[in-house]
Each structure stands twice: as C-alpha cells, then as structure tokens.
Amino acid sequence: MSNKTDISVNVNGREYTRHVSPRVSLADFIRHDLGLTGTHVGCEHGVCGACVVKLDGKIVRSCLTLAVQTDGHAIETIEGLSESGEISDMQEIFHKRNALQCGYCTPGILLTAAELLEKTATPDREEIREFLSGNLCRCTGYEAIIDAVEETARERQDGK
C-alpha cells in the first residue's frame, strides 16, 4: 500500500541507490537494506542514543530520521568512522579502559564523543557528561566512558 521511492545516498563514501518505503527509518534502512549493523536501535523515540549516525557531518538520531529524507545526502556510520581510522585512538582507549561492557551503546557514544571533541578540544568532565547525557548505557559504565573520552582529548592535545 505504501508508495516506494528511489533514493540515492552516500554512506561511508559509497553511493547506494535503493527502493524504499517512506515509513522506513534511516536506522532500519542502514541495518536491513545496507547490512551495516553497527548502528543500533534502542528506544525508537530519540531518547537512548544507540542509533546515532552522522548526516551531512552532524550527528542525528537515525530512528527519528526517515530514509527518504536523506535522498542526496551523506551519511557516516560507525563502520565508516572505524574504517577511516578517524577515531581509532578513542576506540583503543575505550577498549583499554573498559569503557564498554555489552557494547550496545558504544557506537552511538563514540559518534557523539567524536562530535564533542570536534567542537571542544579539551572538555572538562562536566562538559563530557553533559554532551553524552543523551546516550544511555544500561550497563551503567558511565565513569569509565567519561575517563576514556577525557583521556582521548588529553592524548590528542599531547600528540600535537
């Protein structure tokens, strides 16, 4: 009953053209149509942050974005950020500091923390906490996550 439309999107630097129903969320499109399962689906109403992706360079909730809205736009997911090596330092530190337990929230947190460090090179713990407050970790590992983001910022400054 739905009228499917063709959309062309650039995801992690690759062009895709797909036939999608207007009701499909960007999160489901990325996971089911493109097979990129690093983007997770949690609450489906924009509260948990597990589905965060970058749309035209800015982080958005992919569960609150419809795939059809992104026709002609550029999307980056955790897979793209991992392959480019752009956040490999942060991923390494998350691993080292046990800043992930089950890992469900981790892709969203990495993308969100990456945007924070783009905006603010050396955020204090309060700023990190505030910026990540839209990403829920139900393993309750927040302290380690904040430690890891703080250390990434510090190492990036030291490395300059």
Partner: peptide, 9 residues
C-alpha cells in the same frame, strides 16, 4: 533543548 543529536535535527 535535548541533546546535540536532537538539536541538529
């Protein structure tokens, strides 16, 4: 308002 990912939308 909300968080960065929501403010961007």
């Amino acid at each position: 308002i909300a968080h960065s990912a929501v403010r961007n939308m």
